[in-house]
């Protein structure tokens, strides 16, 4: 009996005028890249990052840590507690610490000063657990509040100019067993690893596309990645040594990317492969 059914189903299959998707000529690149574009648009609406951002907003307002304080007086550069548009202007020079800080290192400053949470505790926490999970959610909330804002990193301070130059050197720094630098993949237009286009971060358009679309939710592993996580995994795949979370090398690189992307639009949180 079973045989007949299998036949029935396959007969039906033959009869269908399925809009056959057309044998993709393997080298028919443009059609394939357009198909991937269509895929990305279809998943753009309903970004699971929203779920983290909801929890992040709660954490921002909730007293925590030895000092049992919330983060509502944290100054991300636009004044204590101002979140709207803050992420679009980071990294920036902060007079109170005398350092250039990106979003995550600035949040660690606030966590330490306002809540008494030790910076090292956040740095040492495993990814997506404990303090790092709290950080992911707060970052999701804050970057959502910069969605659509212009990337506008203030390069006037000498420390920012210096960090830009240091970031540029880091970007071109070939090292390790593979001899790769960031530029190997992100230094030319139109390059791709497998089907993954690689923005040219040395130019405004590519830098804005790259910098402006992270942090993002990665569908491949259902994880929300902050910029620090994104940089960490780039170095991992370059086969360099591991950068310390929130270290100056990562901030210098961020200044180089953000400044190159000035004038672009923040599309955060992004949704990625």
């Amino acid at each position: 009996m079973f045989k007949k059914q299998v036949l029935a189903v396959s007969l039906i299959a033959a009869v269908w005028n399925i809009t056959s998707f057309g044998a993709f000529a393997a080298n028919d690149e443009d059609a394939r890249l357009k198909a991937i574009e269509a895929y990305r648009k279809q998943i753009a609406d309903g970004n699971p990052s929203d779920l983290l951002a909801m929890e992040g907003e709660e954490l921002w307002r909730t007293p925590y840590g030895p000092k049992n304080q919330s983060l509502e007086r944290c100054d991300l550069g636009l004044g204590p507690g101002v979140v709207k548009g803050a992420a679009a202007k980071l990294p920036r020079y902060f007079p109170d610490t005398g350092k250039v800080e990106d979003l995550e290192s600035r949040l660690m400053t606030c966590m330490e000063q306002l809540q008494g949470v030790e910076r090292q505790k956040v740095i040492d926490s495993p990814w997506r657990k404990g303090e790092k999970l709290r950080m992911d959610k707060i970052v999701a909330y804050i970057v959502t509040e910069s969605n659509g804002e212009k990337i506008e990193v203030d390069m006037s301070h000498p420390k920012m100019k210096e960090m830009y130059e240091l970031g540029k050197r880091m970007f071109f720094y070939r090292t390790g067993p593979f001899d790769f630098s960031c530029a190997t993949c992100h230094g030319k237009d139109g390059q791709r690893i497998r089907l993954q286009e690689l923005p040219n971060i040395t130019k405004q358009e590519g830098a804005a596309a790259g910098w402006g679309s992270w942090p993002a939710y990665r569908v491949s592993n259902s994880q929300f990645w902050t910029m620090q996580m994104r940089l960490n995994d780039c170095f991992r795949q370059q086969r360099t040594a591991e950068p310390i979370y929130g270290s100056d090398a990562t901030i210098a690189l961020s200044v180089y990317m953000a400044a190159n992307g000035n004038g672009g639009v923040m599309l955060t949180p992004g949704i990625k492969r």
């Binding site: 269509a38 895929y39 990305r40 491949s220 592993n221 492969r273």
Partner: peptide, 8 residues
């Protein structure tokens, strides 16, 4: 989609 960049 004709092509899903990721099956997840």
């Amino acid at each position: 989609p004709d092509i899903a960049e990721n099956g997840a």
